[in-house]
Design a protein around this nucleic acid. Structure first.
Lengths: 209, 209
DNA sequence: ACACGATTGTGTACGCTGTTCACAATGTCA
DNA sequence: TGACATTGTGAACAGCGTACACAATCGTGT
């Protein structure tokens, strides 16, 4: 499990090893569970070796966060691509918006630790276009959301004057539910109820935007 | 600043002193900034004294969280009470819902650390009725939200069949925006833009519920 | 081939944290 | 007054992030 022994003085790709260890720790326990010393231990290396690749514990956590954001984008892409292409353009647009919401909430449900690592850590909106945070398809989760909203405008389902800032509202809604259920007061909500709340919420967004 | 010297062996009300110190630390830095030893230091007491009043650091943080939730409820009540009583019942209901949203977002903006301490910490929904978390008026922020939604149903602005679970959707929306702006990817959003996003969001909720 | 500088890993050490254990001072009540 | 519960203290431990000096290895120019 803990990587093969290393005969050489050099490690090979320690940065990646530390990042993987960080991802594992974040998977169970979220960003706070990412501890630098433990990462070096799992990589079979002395604590300070980490400082050759990350200036800080913070930098390691940020790297983990970027990777986690990329995974989220991938999950959203999967939902996106599953939308039937035989729908009318208007229906496709609505379906894409719902797909973004489902992908986001689904990832939060299935990978709570990584989700929190992705979105609970410093990292500006400006960098929401950073390819490092994109999914396999090359688009960030934020970009996917924006695309869906643009489609809605294009098919006339969303008045253009309500387009500006719409991504904030839509994003807020799903993000809020995720956070309330993950580490907030809705923590102990029955999973089935949470699921229902999710689709209820996506309806609200679609109707209210 | 750091409380008067204490001549006696006994402190007086150490529990309250620790809690106040904890609140101060949470105010700047959020729940993670609440450190037990520092709290005892500020209370002028040895580190272990804390364990006579809190089993854990966790218990201290939870106490801080409860107090912070109560403050949020107070902020919401203030907005609630400011709603003009000369409006029609329907308008009052809408205004109350908006007041809850504004109070919530306003508190998040003005007291980011306390806000995160309030809602980012374990604490079940079941205890959302706990009077310890209520504002001066005796109602929890969750109860205030529920009341506003009940009013909307009463005046016919919200179809009864959409009432169940509506608090989750409404809460999610405002909570999500708050978290994105406070410790998420919208951290560096221009304050004015954030404010606009807030009222835009509240509109969405009112329209989409 | 070889020396030299840059890169990457090691060892030791410091201060901080939460927490435990034994002990001391104080309050309460018979 | 004496026994007992309550609330404080002191010393100690492991774990954390991090700084500093040192060692092994790689890459390059001659």
């Amino acid at each position: 499990m803990t990587s093969a022994q290393r005969a050489n003085y050099r490690h090979g790709d320690l940065r990646k090893a530390l990042l993987d260890a960080g991802l594992d720790m974040a998977r169970e326990g979220g960003p706070d569970a990412v501890v630098l010393r433990e990462a070096t231990r799992r990589a079979g290396v002395s604590p300070n070796a980490a400082y050759r690749h990350f200036a800080d514990r913070t930098e390691l956590v940020e790297a983990v966060s970027d990777a986690a954001q990329s995974l989220v984008a991938g999950a959203i892409e999967a939902e996106w691509d599953a939308v039937s292409s035989r729908l009318s353009p208007a229906d496709v647009a609505h379906a894409h918006l719902a797909a973004v919401g489902r992908g986001y909430l689904g990832f939060a449900r299935d990978q709570p630790g990584l989700f929190r690592a992705a979105f609970t850590v410093p990292s500006d909106l400006e960098s929401a276009l950073d390819p490092a945070k994109a999914g396999p398809g090359g688009r960030t989760s934020f970009q996917l959301l924006a695309t869906a909203l643009d489609e809605l405008v294009a098919v006339g389902a969303l008045p253009p004057e309500r387009r500006p800032g719409a991504e904030f509202s839509a994003w807020s809604a799903v993000h809020g539910l995720a956070m309330l259920v993950l580490e907030g007061p809705l923590r102990n909500l029955d999973p089935e109820v949470a699921r229902a709340a999710g689709s209820r919420l996506i309806d609200m967004v679609d109707r209210g935007l």
